[in-house]
């Protein structure tokens, strides 16, 4: 067990070192967050002023901006353009062969790569969040318990997101190129996961559907915990459902992967 853990931690470490080589990525990540937040700030300040709103869906203006700020950060941490692209290429070109003949799990190897590649963002965004807590006290992480709940919720969000990517990527065993599927998913999730508008603002019928999917646990759940919008009971219920989705997606992913490997002909290698 320990040797397995060491093996995957080595993968994580390797990708971490690689990610630290490209520090400009973190700078662009910060620009992405700030520019996204700035645009949302402009839109919502115009709406609050134009309509004279005190609150929208129980959000005061400042609370809404903080919520969007956190949502953009979580949205970026759970996204994968790089790792998913690499995985698709590996299947298409036959590079996946090297994983098949080695004592490593393709799923966990790339999960560690996924985390390792994003590790630079984890560091930078954590610093931003710590700074935010001190500069604007009381806006996020009101109590230590919110931090304790937030961290596993964030981990679950990243895991669910990775599982969804993994399932989509496995279709490359049959279709060869599934880049468009992943890009479409990424684009749709920018809005649907609540990265730019809280999902509470969505029409009731769409929100009802989203509540029955894992999408809710990608961004909204961790951010709602951090901003103290959920009661303890809602947090516990949320965790139960989120873990249920982790299990379902892991099983589906593993099933599709096994089917895919059975059909895989290594034609690119």
């Amino acid at each position: 067990m320990i040797s397995i853990a060491i093996k995957y931690i080595s993968v994580l470490r390797m990708n971490w070192i690689q990610a630290l080589e490209y520090r400009a990525n973190a700078l662009v990540g910060v620009i992405a967050i700030m520019s996204g937040l700035f645009i949302e700030y402009q839109i919502w300040s115009l709406i609050f002023k134009a309509k004279g709103y005190e609150t929208v869906k129980n959000f005061e203006f400042n609370e809404l901006i903080v919520f969007i700020f956190l949502s953009i950060i979580i949205g970026q941490l759970k996204s994968s353009w790089h790792s998913s692209g690499e995985m698709i290429r590996a299947i298409r070109t036959g590079e996946i062969n090297k994983y098949l003949i080695r004592p490593v799990s393709y799923f966990w190897y790339h999960f560690m790569m996924f985390i390792g590649f994003n590790s630079l963002y984890y560091i930078v965004y954590t610093l931003i969040l710590i700074g935010f807590v001190f500069i604007f006290p009381g806006m996020i992480f009101n109590s230590f318990s919110t931090v304790l709940y937030f961290l596993p919720a964030l981990f679950i969000s990243i895991y669910i997101s990775y599982c969804i990517y993994f399932i989509m990527i496995c279709f490359a065993f049959w279709f060869g190129e599934v880049r468009s599927l992943v890009v479409s998913y990424n684009l749709a999730m920018l809005i649907l996961s609540g990265q730019y508008i809280p999902i509470r603002f969505f029409p009731e019928n769409i929100l009802n559907i989203i509540n029955w999917t894992p999408i809710r646990y990608l961004v909204d759940f961790p951010v709602s915990i951090a901003t103290s919008l959920l009661t303890k009971q809602e947090i516990y219920n949320g965790f139960v459902l989120a873990i249920f989705w982790c299990l379902v997606l892991s099983i589906v992913g593993s099933f599709i992967y096994k089917l895919g490997i059975r059909d895989y002909e290594a034609y690119g290698s």
């Binding site: 115009l46 709406i47 309509k51 809005i191 649907l192 730019y196 603002f201």
Partner: peptide, 19 residues
């Protein structure tokens, strides 16, 4: 892409008439 942008703005316009 078109659908998600349209959805974004339709939500915005459910809270305001003019930008």
């Amino acid at each position: 892409f078109y659908g998600s942008m349209y959805f974004f703005w339709s939500i915005i316009f459910s809270y305001v008439d003019v930008l």
